[in-house]
Design a protein around this nucleic acid. Sequence first.
DNA 1: ATGAAAGCGCTAACAA
DNA 2: TTGTTAGCGCTTTCAT
Lengths: 340, 340
Amino acid sequence: MPTISDVSRLAGVSKTTVSRVLNAPELVNRKTRERVLGVIKKLDYAPSMIARGMRGQKTRMIGVIIPDFTNLYYSEFLKHVEECAIGEGYLALICSTEANREKEKEFIEMLRRRQIEGLILCRYEGVKEDEDFFVRLARDIPIVITDQASRGLPLSAVLTDSRKGIRTLTAHLIERGCRKIAILGGRRIYPFAVERFGGYTDALNAAGIALDERLCEECDCTADGGYRAAERILNRVLPEAFVAVTDLIAIGALRCIQSGGYAVPGDIALGGFDNILLSLLTSPRLTTVEQPIEEIAREAVGQLIRKVRNKRVRNRDIVLENRLIVRESTGAVKREKVLD
Amino acid sequence: MPTISDVSRLAGVSKTTVSRVLNAPELVNRKTRERVLGVIKKLDYAPSMIARGMRGQKTRMIGVIIPDFTNLYYSEFLKHVEECAIGEGYLALICSTEANREKEKEFIEMLRRRQIEGLILCRYEGVKEDEDFFVRLARDIPIVITDQASRGLPLSAVLTDSRKGIRTLTAHLIERGCRKIAILGGRRIYPFAVERFGGYTDALNAAGIALDERLCEECDCTADGGYRAAERILNRVLPEAFVAVTDLIAIGALRCIQSGGYAVPGDIALGGFDNILLSLLTSPRLTTVEQPIEEIAREAVGQLIRKVRNKRVRNRDIVLENRLIVRESTGAVKREKVLD
DNA sequence: ATGAAAGCGCTAACAA
DNA sequence: TTGTTAGCGCTTTCAT
């Protein structure tokens, strides 16, 4: 790779001039500029971001940490995050922790050592549980978390009202005549799962339905987790409906329910949360609470970059809207055939 | 973030000594070393990889470019690539191009400017089509591509025998009594798709079945692409089976077939390729050609790092085994109910 | 066993 | 308008 010195030598100017051609072209004479540009092109020169980062602390990189590459919710999120970051001139360093807190710490360390300018952090666990760690980290770099509130920590958050979302979904099921509604709840230690479980009980309460522990199961936030949890419930009781706290969990549950010979929604209705692309590709299609994934990504990147550019921007929690999308999986009647 | 100077000052030694404590501890006196280590710990110091990269050209970063975050084949691939890279002490800079060659070029440029030491490149299109570009790039950094052969270019490749895989799958379908077998083929300009299409015709030829163009459709490598392509075929003819060149395409097709009121495999059998996790979660479960995704990732990283460490390691194509996994979607009989 | 000095590629302050 | 100089944080000779 050619360096700025190669260019300056060939163009017969100082390195400063070359630098200016790239960073403040208006300050350099048109003739000179064109000559330099010519050499730059000929050598296929591009300034090293490493050296640039070294000099001015500006690496133009942000870190993005997610719990799982194979969780399609995050796949979609990443796609938009990357696009927004590029739009702002930043490269996103993406890491997946496999929901392992040790790995998360290691990644954060690796990213810090590479001088990322900000961090978007997605994790199932609450940040409150590692409060000291994040408070210290936030002194170095701006942080934006998603799907959980900042709860007083010095960082920003982007989320939707999960509780309301699941409440609406559950109410919809109740309205369709279901009373024995099971919940596949993720892990209760996850803030988002706590919220969503809260929405479920809210709706039950409002309808005067008692909470039945036999209808509640925790699970990993994976399709397989959903499958197993649904299995455990079906082994002891036959619900009229399942509420899953994420679409991925719902998709696993769907497979389990259908494997058991039950029709969805004929025998058992099913609803999810997130509206991932895949929720349109199940048979039947999945009723779900839509999260505006692209908007979440855009706000996360936007808020982060604002803070990166101006450290004095204050942290804030950005709450976006979610909404129920009713599809076939909670259809009221026994389906004979799915029409398109 | 504290620097090496902060540490050296507090420990009352030179920067050189601090550096040595980290990079060649045996060269420094035990007492001194411990004192320095103490300060390092107290300050929570970690050497800047930026500065390190600046000095020695060793950034300990590799680039990984994939076409699509929401393609679960790549999700699984990334998971393993990242893990292997970390294992070798490297951070993987992951980018998704959305199958856009302009974006791909831009990412490669961004990565080069960040001085990645090597590149793992996954793309649907053949590298041969951008031969000059890659030949030039390969002079700077080692490259490993996946799912296509290197075809004489100065880079390594990791792949399986796609042609054989699809041939086996198609033969399996023929053996089950299908003769009108449709293919959802990806884009014919993609080398992997050409290979797989070849395997399909191989099997037809071997069985004396004539190729019927009405049974052939190209499509994007997405579930939606599979859905639409299956739809186009079903609009003109009713096949006894579908062969999809990837599981994702198969999953879209499955949805389309079932939406049309056909039973799988009762009315129409279906097979895919890749054995992504999701192929186990459809109803019915998907017959598919397993790609050893983890092994592909491991070999890709392994070969790349070998070359990074020693530029003289010669490029090679590593061909791994794939194998047919028969599941319910090509079951011979009309299913009444799926048992687990 | 330890340190001083140079230099990686760049940009910013200052000078001309 | 252009150039000179210094320095970002580190590693690596070369001395001591």
